[in-house]
Amino acid sequence: MVMGEAQLRERMQHPVIQERLVVTPLLSDAQVKGASIDVRLGTDFILMKRSAAGPIDPMAMRTGVLDYQERARVEVGEKMILHPNQLVLGVTLEFIQVPRDLMAYVIGRSSWGRLGLMVATAVMVSPGYRGSLTLELANLADTPVYLYPGTRVAQLVFHQVDGASSAYAGAGKYTGPVGPEFSKLSWDEDWQAIQRMQPEEM
């Protein structure tokens, strides 16, 4: 069931912090509208850069990730350029808590999409998530485009989760950040199994 405006507002006022839907700072009350909450582009970015250290190996990414990234801060009122085929990691301006009985989908605004901007690939926000949302921003068009922190860049659509009991908070890889986070793919437990399954050298 998709939550409507009245339900969203009610959950945002919930007196019990664990049950509260948190989206802060909410610069404009109009961000909560219809069946979604608009989120804005934050001020911190991770720019992917070319590295002489070799390709990214998702199996061995716990060290050396700084070779591939550069952090940048662009204040509201300033702008940064996103070149064609460039990927940057951005973050929502808002810090979000999704209560344990809800989940959310991140949907890029079509107005940006029509300029070639892809806003997010990890579109599901799990029950119990707490933190700002890292946004994968890619320019799929042939023309550079400016990004302006503070602009509404995506919307969150919340769903009720029936019988939900597992929580993201505490055990998740991405809980609690207030800025963009680089991939933590190498934290997956599956890698140990995959490493053991590699064929032995003859």
Binding site: M12, Q13, V22, T24, P25, L26, R130, A169, G176
Partner: peptide, 13 residues
């Protein structure tokens, strides 16, 4: 202590 950004009711700063 709970782990959220301090806020006022409704998500206001």
């Amino acid at each position: 202590c709970y782990g959220v950004v301090p806020h006022d009711p409704g998500g206001a700063s």
